[in-house]
Design a protein around this nucleic acid. Structure first.
Lengths: 257, 257
DNA sequence: CGCACTTTTGATCGATGTCAAGTATGGTGG
DNA sequence: CCACCATACTTGACATCGATCAAAAGTGCG
C-alpha cells in the first residue's frame, strides 16, 4: 500500500469479461432497464492489474477517471502522519470506490489492492455522457454513493459503540451479504482476502486482539476463518452476536440464509 | 431524543427569513448562479420548531420530505438495542441532514434536535422538480451528500485510530470551519450546543473522559469551552494536536485563521 | 427554592494495546 | 524438490487508556 502506483502490468482490454459485475452490483441496489444494462456494458474502460499492497488510486490527486473493481479485492484507506492506518471500506468486484471523484476534485483517501486485483478505469467524460443520457443510471450512481455513506455510518457505530466481538461479527455479516449481492458467496462461504492486520485497521483494533476474537468465534463454531476464506456456520447466532440489522445495506433483494 | 416526534409547535411559514442559510451552505461548497439561488429561495417549505431532545426525523420511516435545518443545532444518531447511542453527524443551519431520503427509501437513522431548532420540510416532489430543472443544483446536492460521506470517513479515522485528545481537538477544528462556512463563527467563537455526554456519544468516548480531556485543553489555553460556547484560542496548536487537515471538508473558500 | 440536568472529581476496573517470541505457511530460487 | 525467506498467525506477559461507578458541586429554570 506504500509502494509506487502500478507501473507495468498495464493491459488494455476493450471489453473485459468481468465487466458484467458492474451491472450485477447496480442491480443489487436498484432496477435497471435493458438499455441501461447495455450502456453500462458499452462503457469504454482501460484495465490494469495490481498485486497486493499496490495503490490503485492515490489519495491527494485529482482523478480524471473513475475506477471500477472487476476482480479481486480492494480497500479505501487513509494514513495518519505517524503511520496509523484506518481502512474505511472494503470493495468487491462491481464496486466503484472513487465514484465521488466525479463531483469532488481532490481525492481525500487512497484505494489499495488487497490481493491480485483487476481494476478498470472509466473516463469521467464517459461517465458524464452516460448519466446525462440515462437519468436512471445517474440515480443508480447517486444511490450507490448514498449507500456507501450508509455503510460508513454503520461502521462508525461499530467502531464507536460496539466492542471487539460485536465489531468483528458485524463485519462478517456485512461482507457475507455484500458478496451474496454479486453472487460470490455460495454456501455462505466467501473469500476474504484480508489479513488479521487489515481487519484490525478496518475495525480500530490491534492485530493481536483480532486474532483472539477470531479464535473465540471459531471455538464457538459460528464461523470458519482460514486461508482467506470465511464460512458462516451459524448465521442467526452470528447476527445476534453482532447486533446486525441489514437495513443499512439497502439491498433490493437479499437471498435468505 | 426519545420522546415522540414533535406534535404541536407547528407553524406554517411560506418564506422564513432563515431560508437563505441553505443558499449560504451550498455556496460554501459550490458555485451557484443567480437563478439557482432564487430557485432555492422559492422552494415551498413547511416549518416546525423543536426543543432539545425531540426527534426531527425518526429512523425507520419512509420520508416524503427532505428536512432543512434553518436555525439551531441537530444531530444524526442511531441507537443500539441496549441503548448505546452513536451520534454520526452534527448539523448546523443550512444543512439537509436527510437529503439521502430522496434516493433511499427507508431512513436508517434518526435526526434529533440538540437545542431549540427550526426545521423546514421540503416535499420530495419539489426537490425532484428543482433538480430536474437545474442540473447545477442536482450536482450541488450530490456534491453535498458526497462531502457528507467524506466527513463520515474522517470521523471513522478519528474514532478508529485517534486517541481521545486528538479526537476532541479534531472535532473542534471541524466545527469551527463548518460554522465559518455559514458565517456563524465570528472571532473563532461559535455555539456548540452539545453536552459533554453528546460529545462522548459522537466520539465513542464516555462523558467522564470527555470532561477530563476538555479540562486539559482549557488548562493549556488552546480553547475556551463553557456555556455551550467554544472559542479557539490557539488555532495552529489545536490543529497540530488534532492532526487536522481540512481537505476532507472540500470547502471552496475557507477563511484564514 | 427546589428540581433536573450537567459538570466535575475520585477510585477502581477491565478491555484492548504493546512488546516479544515462537510457529505456521506459502512463494522463490537453486 | 528442497532450503530459505518473508509474511502471517499465534501465544504469553504486561501496560494503559479510557470505562464505570458513585458522589459532590454547579447551573438554569419554573
Amino acid at each position: 500500500m506504500h509502494q509506487p502506483v502500478n507501473r507495468n502490468a498495464m493491459l488494455y482490454i476493450d471489453r473485459p469479461p468481468e465487466r458484467h459485475r458492474l451491472v450485477q452490483k447496480l442491480q443489487s441496489i436498484t432496477e435497471l432497464t435493458a438499455e441501461e444494462r447495455q450502456a453500462l456494458l458499452d462503457l469504454p474502460m482501460t484495465v490494469r492489474s495490481y498485486t497486493r499492497g499496490e495503490d490503485i488510486v492515490r489519495g491527494g490527486g485529482i482523478p480524471s477517471e473513475c475506477c471500477l473493481i472487476l476482480d479481486g479485492f480492494a480497500c479505501r484507506y487513509k494514513l495518519l502522519p505517524d503511520g496509523r492506518r484506518q481502512i474505511m471500506a472494503f470493495h468487491t468486484p462491481g464496486d466503484l470506490p472513487d465514484l465521488q471523484s466525479l463531483h469532488i476534485q481532490t481525492l481525500d483517501h487512497s484505494v489499495g489492492a488487497m490481493m491480485p486485483t483487476l481494476a478498470a478505469f472509466i473516463p469521467h467524460a464517459s461517465m458524464r455522457t452516460l448519466t446525462a443520457r440515462f437519468p436512471g443510471l445517474m440515480h443508480a450512481f447517486w444511490r450507490d454513493t448514498l449507500i456507501d455513506a450508509a455503510v460508513f455510518r454503520e461502521w462508525l457505530i461499530g467502531i464507536g459503540r460496539r466492542d471487539a466481538h460485536e465489531r468483528i461479527a458485524h463485519l462478517i455479516c456485512e461482507m457475507l451479504l455484500r458478496f451474496r449481492g454479486v453472487e460470490l458467496a455460495p454456501d455462505n462461504t466467501f473469500r476474504m482476502p484480508a489479513t488479521q492486520g487489515d481487519i484490525a485497521d478496518a475495525l480500530g483494533l490491534s492485530n493481536v486482539h483480532v486474532n483472539r476474537v477470531l479464535q473465540d468465534l471459531r471455538r464457538d463454531k459460528l464461523i470458519t476463518w482460514g486461508n482467506y476464506t470465511v464460512s458462516v456456520l451459524k448465521w442467526d447466532e452470528l447476527q445476534k452476536r453482532a447486533l446486525f440489522d441489514a437495513t443499512y445495506l439497502h439491498q433490493v433483494s437479499r437471498a435468505a440464509a
